[in-house]
Structure formats: structure tokens, C-alpha cells
Amino acid sequence: MHAATLGVALVLGLAACAPKARPLTGAPTRAALPTFAVDPRPHVLEFTWEYKDETFEAAGEGAVRVQGPDRARLDFFLRNGMAGGYAILIGDTLSTPGGDLVKRLLPPAPLLWASLGRLALPAAPDTAARMDGDTLRADLGALRGKDASGADGRAWRIAVVGNGLHRVERIENGKVMEWVERRQEANGRWRVHYVHERGKRRLTIALTDTRYVEGFDAAIWRRS
């Protein structure tokens, strides 16, 4: 097979692994999209995590040190006290100097911020939004009069339930490539799911504790 043809076939095959984005449901609305930010007080989120893909599984504990409005450091530790790794998220830049494990685990910056409850998507020319009961769903991208299910190129879909950011999806050419979903359990703690559909990667994070602190040493934000 010609190299160019093989390349096209490979791309189409990978895209086929991702589910189609469904059309937005509900009544059209022009309500302004809510803003979501992290708590401005310095705090530490402790969690347990589980990761799985087609060739690798891992689990352990971790912590996120969050400094509003747009700084977070994530530390992961493998089960049984083994070494893990870390990542630094500042604005829209995600650095993973802590090794390949963390690079393998984490979503891109917009979805990682969504997992922490902050909405920080790239600027988009078009927005389509609908209300379905207590759920606001909105698509952002170059929609050209459509929603993300029929748009060309990259788009984002968000779901807001009540007053909380519930889900964010990255959509490419009408296919859902990856997503983050946040759910508050009966005990009040958050559980976050990240799924990369095409890569068949899954990460689950369960919050176990939240601690507020006076501040953080500036050294934790250094990328090397």
C-alpha cells in the first residue's frame, strides 16, 4: 500500500475507535455560560487513583497543590510506596518533568483543569447552547451554524448540572476523542473519570481529603 494511502487508512482507523458526538438536546438558550474557577485559597487535595490502558495498569495515591487562579502541582505515588512522578500546570501549560508515568496518565491542560473544577478552554469563534432540564450543554468551536456533532475540526462540549461543572469533551470532526467527568458522591467527596477513547486510556481519581494551607514554597512550581 502506498505510504500516503496507508497513513490515511491509519488515521481513519484510529478515528473510528472514537464514538460519534450526539447532537445537542434540549431547548436552545442564549444564557451566558457560567465561569468556573478554583478556590483562591491555597489548598491541597489528597486522592487515590487507578489507571488502565491496553498494556498497562497502575494505582496509588497522590496530592494536588492548588494555588489560584491558575497553578497546580500534581504528585502521584505508586501503590506499596514505590516512586511515582509529578506534573506542573500553570495557565494553559502542562509540564511533566516527573517522568513517563505521569505523562501517560494525564489529559491535556484544558481537561486537567476541568478535573479540578476550572473551565479553561481555548478561545472559540462559535457557541451553541441548550438547556435540558437542569443541565446546560454547550459546544464551542468553529461550528458554522451547527453543533459539535456536525462541525469540522476541533470543538469542545461542556455540561453544567445545576451550578457545577460536570463534564468536558474534546471532539474532533464529530468524534468524541477524550473527556473528563466529575461526580460528587453521597459522602460529599468528588470522583473524577478521564477517558481517552481512541487511546483506550482510563484514569479514575477519588478525592479523600482537602486541606487549606497558608501558601506554598515557590520551588514547587519550577519545571526542572
Rank of each mutant, 00 (worst) to 15 (best):
E46Y: 13
L111V: 07
E61G: 13
G98A: 09
V66R: 00
A124R: 01
G68K: 02
P40Y: 08
R73K: 15
L45V: 15
G84Y: 05
P19H: 06
A138H: 09
R144T: 00
G26M: 02
Q67I: 00
T55N: 10
P125T: 01
R130E: 03
T135K: 13
T135A: 14
L78S: 11
R71C: 01
R137T: 15
T48M: 09
Q67W: 09
P125I: 01
P23M: 04
E50D: 11
T135P: 02
T93Q: 14
A148F: 07
A148Y: 07
I90G: 01
E54V: 11
A32H: 06
D132K: 12
Q67G: 00
P42H: 05
T127A: 13
G145P: 03
H43A: 10
D132T: 03
D132F: 01
L24I: 07
A129H: 09
C17S: 11
A123R: 12
M131W: 03
R30S: 12
R30M: 11
A87Y: 06
P34K: 08
G150H: 07
W113D: 00
M82T: 06
A32C: 05
P40M: 12
L101V: 04
T29V: 06
P107T: 08
P110M: 04
P42R: 00
A129P: 08
A128E: 14
G85W: 06
T93F: 08
A109D: 01
T35Y: 02
F56H: 12
F76L: 14
M82Y: 13
P42C: 07
